[in-house]
Amino acid sequence: MEKIKTKIKPIPGFANFQEKFNTVINTETWEKCQLDFNSSNRILAVGNGGNLAVCDHGAIDIARLTNKSATAPGSGILASSLINDVSHNAWVKNWLSIMTRGFDQSHLNQTMLIGVSSSGYSKNICLALDHALSLGCKATLISAQKPHIEGEYNTVILDVDEYHTSEVLTLTLFYQLIHGANFTCPTITESVKRNVIDDYTRE
């Protein structure tokens, strides 16, 4: 049977991915984000939809691979409870208040909130970033495009137009934060070798 040859069309938005990444990490706003990350002991990350999944993934790996505490409100139970308590616009701010409960000023000053938005129009994220600054925390918004809502917090603009590009680029930037703080992002080869050794020692 003759094989049918089909031309696979690549998904748009990734053709110049490396160039976009390099452009972002060479901006002053990214430099500030990295410096704030390096000087913080606790990282909180939040977004909506796919961006929340990215934040959850990024926070888990920050906690695993660095000496920092990191978390994101990845539970649907948590988010829906807070939304029901107040409103969609205020739930992230309330989550931040819960996460910083009992912190003295020294702990607040060493806490960083990273908010992620594709449109830059996520009011719930922006209100939480404003609240973080009012508490004395560090705050950065990562936005795919120039935000429709502006705040005093640091803003990193990705300058991309696709949701999928924004989400993948943001996750890559979480790993850049880890790397930029002089921690190691392990390779698959190293992890496999370590697991083999661990399995051997357990026998």
Rank of each mutant, 00 (worst) to 15 (best):
L169S: 02
L158N: 05
T187P: 07
C185H: 07
H179N: 15
G120K: 09
H107K: 15
L169Y: 02
T140E: 12
L169E: 03
Y121C: 10
T170K: 04
K138C: 05
T184M: 04
K123N: 07
N182M: 02
A128F: 06
L113W: 12
S134H: 12
F103Q: 11
M112E: 07
E150V: 00
E152K: 14
H107N: 14
L133P: 02
T100H: 11
S117Q: 02
T155D: 11
H179K: 15
D130H: 10
I114N: 08
N124T: 07
S118C: 01
V168Y: 05
L135H: 07
I114W: 09
T155R: 11
G136D: 03
L133T: 10
Y153R: 00
Y163C: 08
G120T: 07
S143C: 08
F183C: 13
C126L: 14
H164T: 12
T111C: 11
Q176P: 03
A139I: 02
S119T: 08
Y121T: 11
Q176L: 00
Q105M: 11
T184N: 10
S119V: 09
A139F: 05
N109M: 13
C137Q: 10
H107M: 15
E162P: 00
L173Q: 06
L171D: 08
L113Q: 06
P147I: 04
I157G: 04
L158E: 03
S119C: 08
D104L: 11
N124Q: 04
T111F: 05
